[in-house]
Amino acid sequence: MQRAIAQHDYWNITRELTVSAFKLRDQGTFLGFLWTLLQPLAMLSVLYWLFRNRVGESIEHFGLYLLIGIVLWTFFAMGTGKGLLSLVMRRDLISAVTFPHELIAVSAVFTVLFSSTLEFVVVLGFAIAVGAGISWTWLWLPVILATEAVLVIGCSLLFAPWYVYARDLDNIWNILLRLGFFLTPIFYLPEQFLSEGEQRIYMLNPVTQIMTHARTVLLHHELPSFGATAYTLGVSLAILLAGFVNFRYFTRDLAERI
C-alpha cells in the first residue's frame, strides 16, 4: 500500500498537542498552574514529617533528597499513566485524522515533562534555600530529565496500544506504580534497608538510577559515573525502541479496534 498523506511536521504536531493539553489541564481551576507545584510540595511535607528522624537523620539535606525523588517519581508515574490512556482519550482523532498517532502518546508525556521541568526549577530554588550550594554539575540535569523522558515515552508507546485491547492494563499499571513508589529510593537510602546483593538487583531499575544521578549532581556536586549513565541511557533507549516497534505493529488496525 503506497500513499503520501500531506507531509507532517512532527515537531509542530507534538508542540500543538502538548501546549493545548497543558492549557486545558488547569483551565477553570482557581490556582491554575500552582496546582502542579502544590502536589509535590504537599507530598514532601508529609514524607518529611514522617521520616525526618528515623530515616532522614542519616541523609544530608533530607528535604532536598526527598523533593528530587518525588519530582522524578511523579514524572515517571504521571507520564506513563497519561501515556497509557492517551490513545483511548483521543480516539476521535484516530478514526478521522491521518497523522502519526505515536505523537498522541509522545505529547501526553511532553505535557507532564513540561510540568516536571518547572518543578525542577523549584527544586533548584529549594537547593539554594537549604544551603546545598550551586554547582556547574547542575548543567547535567537536562540530560537526566531527557533520559527519563526517553524512558517514559518508551513505556507509553509500549502500553498505549495494549490499553486499547485490554482496559485492565490501567489498573495493573496503577498497582505496579504503587509498589514502585516503595521500591525506588524516594524517601530512604537503599543501603538502609537492603543487603548488598539486593541492592545490585534494586539498582537495575532505571528510575532508581535516574534518581541517584540527580542526587549526585544536586547534593554531591559530582557527575554520575560513565558506566551508570551509559546503562541508564541504554535501557531507556532500548525501551523506547521496543515501544516504537510495538506501537507500529499493534496500531496497524487501530482505527478499527479503538
Partner: peptide
C-alpha cells in the same frame, strides 16, 4: 493551529 498541525500544515 492545533487541527492545522495535525493535517499537515507547518506553523
Amino acid at each position: 493551529f492545533l487541527y492545522g498541525a495535525m493535517i499537515g500544515f507547518r506553523r
